[in-house]
Amino acid sequence: MSSQSAFAEALLAEEVVCPPGLATWNGSAPGKRFAVYRNNVIVSLIDALADSFPVTQELVGEQFFRALARQFVRAAPPRSPVLALYGDGFAEFIEAFPAATGVPYLADVARMELLRVQAWHAADADALTPDEIARLLGDPAALPDARLILHPSVRLLRSPYAVVSLWAAHQSESAALALAAVDPAQAETALVLRNVLDVEISAIAEGPATFILNLQQGVAFGQAAGQALAADAGFDLAASLGLLIRGGVLAGVEFPGSTHS
């Protein structure tokens, strides 16, 4: 084992064990200095999780959250130097965390908060302008086979819990009051998207969810709309398209054989 991997392993070990071969510039005990460094590493990663998962933290309280985060940091340290995106797998970790079983929706709230961070950092894409959309209407026959391209920030989460309402309640000043009105066991599908510089989260019905998932998978416009109608008889295509256009996430159109955006 290289000295680097020994050092890295010691940072995350349960007990403080000073890796061999460390020396200090002023002759102080290397073990003590190492313990300080190790503590900073773990605490800064816990802080990073607290930044990215604010509602998850509010749901269980800071003390519980930090204990949970500490175990996650040990089990799954960052694999990328991009700290902003740290937290992949946190929701799955929460699901398997015995002490969190009393809060069954916690993992999905964390899952949604990760999507929110991802949406924030997703690549940019220009939305179609009203003129470009109007031009599509000039050739309706081409519409069923057209592929609608969505903004890279668009993400969906289907949850058996009221993730969006729970999250929204925590955005208000009087979270306790707003929370009282939420039934956590109400299933919700979250649509997460970035509209220019703002990440927006909304709850959407099964129809729009099916429609958006199909579009993301490259299914043609006509077929995607048909699937959505089959999944949800109340599917309102105009309202769904309006949602995407207003959110600035209808980012392009491709026609089979040629491209155009």
């Binding site: 309706p140 026959a141 081409a142 519409l143 069923p144 043609a220 006509g222 709309a225 048909g226 295509l237």
Partner: peptide, 8 residues
């Protein structure tokens, strides 16, 4: 699939 007219 939905028809061209409905989509438009």
């Amino acid at each position: 699939p939905m028809t061209a007219a409905a989509l438009a």
